[in-house]
Design a protein around this nucleic acid. Structure first.
Lengths: 157, 157
DNA sequence: ATATCTGCAAAGACTTTGCAACCGC
DNA sequence: GCGGTTGCAAAGTCTTTGCAGATAT
């Protein structure tokens, strides 16, 4: 993770931006996450243990991380952006439980290959993709018909 | 398209809701769309030719259409919801040009089959999926390096 | 020293909700 | 007539922006 922080700082330097204390703390917290964080979530993690880092700065730093190519932003339909490391991006997609909201990652090279084929056939050049499957996870599939889920979960490994 | 309107009205009846003039007009306009509409967009189409139909009612009716299983809401990352017919939903996904925003639809049964496999392997039962490919379309791929702001680039080597 | 940053508050974009008047059934 | 519905305005989310004071280089 040290490496990514360094990459970020190099990016800042190259872009003529400053490596501030806040940016380092936010980036560090971001790289420490295991899955998908919202700006708000990262803010709570950082703000908890550090002196007054504003939510606004978290948003701005996440945008920098995106520009640096170190973060990807996703939208899983709940209206807000969730961020994840760019490096963990390699060949993985998401399956989201519509009941409890749990997000599981998976990878499929076969699917990726097919995507490439299709895209080429349509004259597009692919940059990236999002594949999201929605359904019931094992647990929720068992307990059918049970109130509103929405338990944000976050299952830290 | 008549059929879908009827389905909607049947849904309303079944749910003890009323088939109002506004709902019919909005549903009609929605079924007349060919691709993806935002609430705002549908509002403009309807509002233009009809007496005072509020944006709020469009939102509410789109929600009803979703509940009726006649519409699907998608989020392509620009922050707002886009709606499309559920019936055109059969086996198709999207490829979005990151340059001009053009959305093209495509279908792949092979990919769908693979998805099913994966999902089952993970213990999930699939309800629906979203596959979005992002890249440059033929036109934009030709005129490289032209974009407006958007050029995040800088990809750390 | 100075141009960039920060944090607060305020604005913005999109969507939902409260409420009095309204209209299907 | 009753209960759902409408449209306005207001509130609610999530995110961005304006600005004065603070800070990295």
């Amino acid at each position: 993770m040290k490496a990514k922080l360094l990459q970020f700082q190099q990016y800042l330097h190259r872009a003529g931006l400053k490596a501030t204390r806040q940016r380092e703390l936010i980036a560090r917290a971001f790289f420490a996450t295991t899955t998908h964080v919202s700006a708000e979530g990262l803010y709570r993690q950082v703000g908890g243990r550090n002196p007054r880092i504003g939510l606004v700065t978290v948003y701005r730093t996440l945008k920098l991380l995106k520009n640096a190519g170190l973060a990807h932003e996703r939208q899983f339909g709940d209206g807000r952006g969730l961020f994840e490391h760019a490096s963990s991006e390699r060949h993985h997609d998401h399956i989201i439980c519509t009941e409890c909201g749990k997000i599981t990652e998976f990878a499929s090279c076969e699917i990726e290959a097919l995507q490439e084929q299709i895209v080429r056939r349509l004259g597009f050049s692919i940059q990236y993709h999002k594949l999201e499957l929605y359904g019931l996870c094992r647990d929720c599939g068992a307990n059918v018909s049970r109130g509103p889920g929405k338990v944000s979960a976050i299952v830290a490994g």
